[in-house]
Amino acid sequence: MNIKKNWWKILASVCLLYTVIEGFIGEVPAREILNETIRNLYFHVPMWFGMMTLLFISVIYGIRHLRNGRMRDDLIARESAHAGVAMGILGLITGSLWARYTWGTWWTSDTKLNGAAITMLIYFAYFVLRGSVEDEQKRARLSAVYSIFAFVMMMVFIMILPRMEDSLHPGNGGNPGFSKYDLDSKMRMVFYPAVLGWILLGVWIMTIRVRIATLENQLHEPTFTDHPTL
């Protein structure tokens, strides 16, 4: 294994090992209502960081594809969206569980929750769009255009909606963020590595999926091997 090229994979593994061990058996501040569920901070919140990073990568590669027309950029855009949506779903599940034990319900109509749901709807639509176009080049271009449009509108939605409605979610609608619960900054020592670890894991999964898809393309279309871009 090439350390110079793959150091970030080692970093991801170390960060995640640390997160899981310290997250489950480490000391956490005792707070009412939250109790032990406060540990979910290390798993629920980084999922959204990971998702946003991957979706951002997806949009960047979409723009790159529009500029140079390379199919590899489209492949990366697609797989980033896949990995990002997977992390989003995990974020929804962990959030739903957390809401059950703190707010008393699996799902409630809340700004942050609606934003998350819309993000999922947009990216499911993105996959449906990809599935409905036969021609490769056309599919890449249409989905890149859609993902740029959708990503910008999603950011707008996430920014304007909290100004219109109140929220239960920490860090929204006048609620304090988690920094208030974490008075001695002990949780930060786990939270930051957790965010880094989950983001890197998401990117890692994406690169593996890109490699698998590239191999599959070569298998089905042998001419791809002498194509310089794939």
């Binding site: 947009i122 769009l129 859609y146 509108m153 939605f157 909606l161």
Partner: peptide, 11 residues
């Protein structure tokens, strides 16, 4: 494609 994107506008 349109509904999720239209939501911020609609709201």
């Amino acid at each position: 494609l349109s509904f999720p994107i239209l939501l911020p506008l609609l709201m």
